[in-house]
């Protein structure tokens, strides 16, 4: 078997006018000015995504911010089985279970906190959930905040979406 040899174009020597740079600089200035004028006149060349207003569409399997699901009657689907907390490698889920007033539900989460500062977005909680109560399909990152307390998402925050 022979090895194929490919000719690679080496950078050629600069011609004299090129080595003076001046002409090339003016050409370069033309390019940048062209871009600028184009972008001022027509905006479609602009790549910027105006982030909070316009959000990138995440691929469907993107693991984003968690949300807790509700039953048809509006109560949280979570039964506080602790499977997610058990599966969580970052130990970021804190659940306090309680006796639900609805005997058909029996157990419900009095507290369901996810410490977003600890979460590693691995999705194991979603895998572990036997009730499909927790999902990470919001397509949304954890929004930044200015205190640690605000980044511990409580059950109300997680049920919002």
């Amino acid at each position: 078997m022979t090895i194929g040899i490919r000719k690679v174009a080496r950078p050629r020597e600069m011609t004299f006018p090129e080595s003076l740079y001046l002409v090339e600089i003016v050409k370069g200035l033309g390019v940048t000015m062209g871009h600028m004028l184009r972008n001022i006149v027509r905006q479609e060349g602009i790549m910027t995504m105006e982030y909070p207003e316009v959000r990138r569409r995440m691929p469907p399997r993107f693991r984003g911010r968690h949300r807790l699901m509700r039953r048809p009657d509006g109560s949280p689907r979570c039964v506080a089985c602790y499977c997610c907390a058990t599966a969580c490698p970052a130990k970021c889920i804190t659940i306090v279970a309680g006796e639900s007033p609805d005997p058909a539900v029996e157990k419900y989460p009095v507290r369901f906190d996810i410490d977003m500062l600890r979460c590693v977005f691995c999705g194991l909680c979603v895998e572990a959930c036997p009730c499909d109560a927790i999902r990470m399909d919001t397509g949304w990152f954890t929004p930044p905040d200015d205190s640690r307390e605000k980044l511990i998402f409580t059950i109300d925050v997680l049920l919002e979406k």
Binding site: T32, M36, N39, I46, M47
Partner: peptide, 10 residues
Amino acid sequence: KGAAYIQDRR
């Protein structure tokens, strides 16, 4: 602003 427009930004 100029830098942005030259670089196709906003």
